[in-house]
């Protein structure tokens, strides 16, 4: 039962923020046995070359993800909502910024 009692510890997802104000971006995974170790390992593994100034680590099994079958029902309905985008609207040329 190697999968349930992996001696390398559970898997974590790592997110790095490059600079304050910017979004946290997923950059990879690692193994760690506890939260502090996950954070330290993320630092040692994913920020060796000034890649970031802040880190999130999340246990991989806490991630809920959509499935490939969801592409249609989840994302395609947004395709025809063009009125959500500013370019949909006609504004007199005299108005430079809006």
């Amino acid at each position: 039962m190697a999968n349930t009692k992996d001696s390398q510890g559970p898997l974590w997802e790592v997110f790095v923020q490059k600079k304050s104000g910017q979004p946290f971006v997923h950059c990879g995974n690692l193994h760690a046995f506890d939260k502090e170790m996950a954070l330290q390992n993320a630092r040692d593994l994913y920020t060796r070359r000034n890649e970031g100034t802040a880190l999130w680590v999340v246990p991989s099994d806490a991630i809920v993800s959509s499935s490939p079958e969801d592409i249609g029902p989840f994302f395609e309905p947004a395709n025809d909502k063009v009125f959500r985008h500013p370019t949909f609207y006609k504004i007199p040329d005299a108005i430079k910024h809006m």
Binding site: Q8, L30, H31, M37, Q40, N41, D44, L45
Partner: peptide, 10 residues
Amino acid sequence: FLEEDLALTN
């Protein structure tokens, strides 16, 4: 283990 190997090298 691999992660700790890297940490100690740092």
